[in-house]
Design a protein around this nucleic acid. Sequence first.
DNA 1: TCTTGACTTAAACCATGGTTTAAGTCGTAT
DNA 2: ATACGACTTAAACCATGGTTTAAGTCAAGA
Lengths: 124, 124
Amino acid sequence: MKYNSIGEVSAQFNIPESALRYYEKQGLLPLIERDDAGRRLFSERQVALLQAVVCFKNTHMPIKSIKQYMEMIVEGDATLKRRLAMMKEHKQRILDEIATLTEYLPAIDEKIERYIKQIGEERP
Amino acid sequence: MKYNSIGEVSAQFNIPESALRYYEKQGLLPLIERDDAGRRLFSERQVALLQAVVCFKNTHMPIKSIKQYMEMIVEGDATLKRRLAMMKEHKQRILDEIATLTEYLPAIDEKIERYIKQIGEERP
DNA sequence: TCTTGACTTAAACCATGGTTTAAGTCGTAT
DNA sequence: ATACGACTTAAACCATGGTTTAAGTCAAGA
């Protein structure tokens, strides 16, 4: 099996090593193996799980929730329903967030239009 | 002129009074007047500016940036171009954020579909 | 008069999400 | 041998965005 060092993973995902260590400490990256010297070994599986963490972080899931999700993955199939419910809720929060941002865009556009107009009138 | 107390504004916008006081302290609500007892008086103008603050906060503009914007409003027409540039940048950040959220939605949907499928196979 | 409710302040406190620092351990190339 | 680069840890530090607390002021009603 191919293992990646923390430096390699940091470079691949453009995430500081300090953040990866912090994520592991917070329980976002459970079951990371170590070599004889205590250095982290990221398996392909861990890299895939980190990809999920990246997805969750980019969609603003709190660290505590990501941790719960990862704990459920470790727990196995008994948590499938809860994981499904969690993903449905998270999807809804993403949709709500998109809706909020979209709703406020016209207000920003109005300010832009107003400033363009005012600047045009100022320097005639 | 109609003035609103901090309690009224708090109720209207569903924002804690502590947050409104914090916003003023941080410079997000400049030029708020006071009565003889030192109590804040929100004019219609201030309420309108607060509406802008709410818009910026809901679209994740940092407090420091909102403060800069409000300082430019106080400064007057000399800052019109800078305000326009700021609004254009902020709009782009909103669009980028919507794009990011939208890009990750399929990954969440895949997990949802996978869990539905797996749960269906588990309880046949 | 005295209490109550709405307000004031400064300062302390809190949660979230990390980064930085200091000290140390390896493996490898010179 | 030793120096270097990549890694380790715990603990301290930081930024952001507030909330909470303690002590006080003021106006109005019982």
